[in-house]
Design a protein around this nucleic acid. Sequence first.
DNA 1: CAGTGCCGATGACATTTGTCATCGAGGCAT
DNA 2: ATGCCTCGATGACAAATGTCATCGGCACTG
Lengths: 213, 213
Amino acid sequence: MSAQLEPVMDTAPVRVLLADDEHLIRGALAALLSFEDDLRVVAEAASGPEALAMARAHRPDVAVLDLEMPGADGVAVATSLRSELPDCRTMIVTGHGRPGHLKRALTAGVRGFVPKTVSAQRLAEVIRTVHAGGRYVDPELAADAISAGDSPLTARETQLLEFAADGAPIAEIAQRAALSPGTVRNYLSSAAAKLSAENRHAAVRIARSQGWL
Amino acid sequence: MSAQLEPVMDTAPVRVLLADDEHLIRGALAALLSFEDDLRVVAEAASGPEALAMARAHRPDVAVLDLEMPGADGVAVATSLRSELPDCRTMIVTGHGRPGHLKRALTAGVRGFVPKTVSAQRLAEVIRTVHAGGRYVDPELAADAISAGDSPLTARETQLLEFAADGAPIAEIAQRAALSPGTVRNYLSSAAAKLSAENRHAAVRIARSQGWL
DNA sequence: CAGTGCCGATGACATTTGTCATCGAGGCAT
DNA sequence: ATGCCTCGATGACAAATGTCATCGGCACTG
């Protein structure tokens, strides 16, 4: 409803938003992408909320979002963008690619998902692919996600595992969750059993590694 | 023994080794540093051992090492470099700057320590400072390190906390450490007391956050 | 040499945690 | 309404864990 002033070129440059909380990485990435004639970084952000604000202001074609950011993580930002700016494609770049994250991202409408171990060349390619309406998911991460399957945990089990994540004793977890200590033990026991863990702490580790936390 | 063909300039460029396991970051960083006339990235590495090998082969003036790398972390690499290539200055770049890491790094002879939230401009400055024989430590990290103090844990306590880090039961820890289960409980209990933790799992978290792990 | 501190172990004891069977309240579908 | 399910709770019991006192060996240090 407003992009009609852009001069139509042979191939118009792709307007990119870059969001990563690490200044160094973000700047370096911007510099690197500037080598690509058909890509133009039009905005940068260091946090989830800032990424949203920049997206509203600059209306990029593609938003490249780091998964781990303060304020709101990449998937949360992608979810908001999907409703606010449906024409803006989103993609996620991440250091640690856990299977669960990929699933959350895809259901949030994210079209690209790559680890930070890829080359800049490939990142540029993926940006182009995503902008053209295609999708790209790192093959290794995809394989992990498929073989991992869905979380077997119920909502309460997941919630209580989160409360247990910092090693707090049962009594404290019960307080924070406003549940009876016995109930807490039951749910955590069942969660540990589902994850084949020897106790709740190991269960937390396993759930974390799968991105189910 | 082989660099005599380089034309001697007014100020010879600083030869830099870049080590980071994330391809994207490493490449982008290299591209960015290439804008600085007086800096030259002569080698890149994606792991600790590879960084060592590249350093031996290219004998850089400054080694810029990521703290978290597979094989051997940045501090370990710095320690090896100190004895093998005393003329090579080392510096650490890290995402999460825990107080303990900084201390370990400084005792390993590292001359620069910066988080990834700094600008590329500053990174370049720090590289120059380090090359000139100076030191630079991020002020915020330095403050954290000073206020945090040293680890109150003994060697065994630290070791057992590491074994306990994945939530394993006491029996398993005892086996892995080749100790009696009772002894393990004693050490972990004492470690938890020193850290004011309610149990060993919370103690692990606290020790981790301080870089004492 | 005596003192100190860490290491490794043992035993006893209280507490926490894991496991299981069971129960009642409510939602939902046939 | 009846059955079926999940949630939340309780009680009982076993197992794991935390805590404490104590011991001997060893290394370092004054």
